[in-house]
């Protein structure tokens, strides 16, 4: 193979690699952005949903305490 042919082969393989790299990079970035979005949404939902904590379970027959 002459010198020009091997340079063409190198350029072709490099182009394929650059295309694969950009494709992978973009998928990576998109997936991370989507995950961040989902996490933000989950945190927002957790913060806006009313919540209560159970401290004590009333015994049967025990009068209900009213405030």
């Amino acid at each position: 193979m002459d010198n020009a042919a091997i340079l063409v082969a190198t350029a072709a393989v490099l182009s394929v690699w650059i295309a694969i790299f950009i494709y992978l990079w973009r998928i990576d970035a998109a997936a991370r952005a989507l995950r961040r979005e989902l996490e933000r949404e989950r945190e927002h939902n957790d913060a806006s949903t009313p919540s209560a904590t159970v401290n004590r379970v009333r015994e049967a027959g025990e009068p209900v305490e009213r405030r």
Partner: peptide
């Protein structure tokens, strides 16, 4: 990784 693999390709051919 991108730069390293580009270097490997160049080394493989040249």
């Amino acid at each position: 990784i991108g730069v390293w693999m580009a270097g490997v390709i160049i080394a493989t051919f040249l």
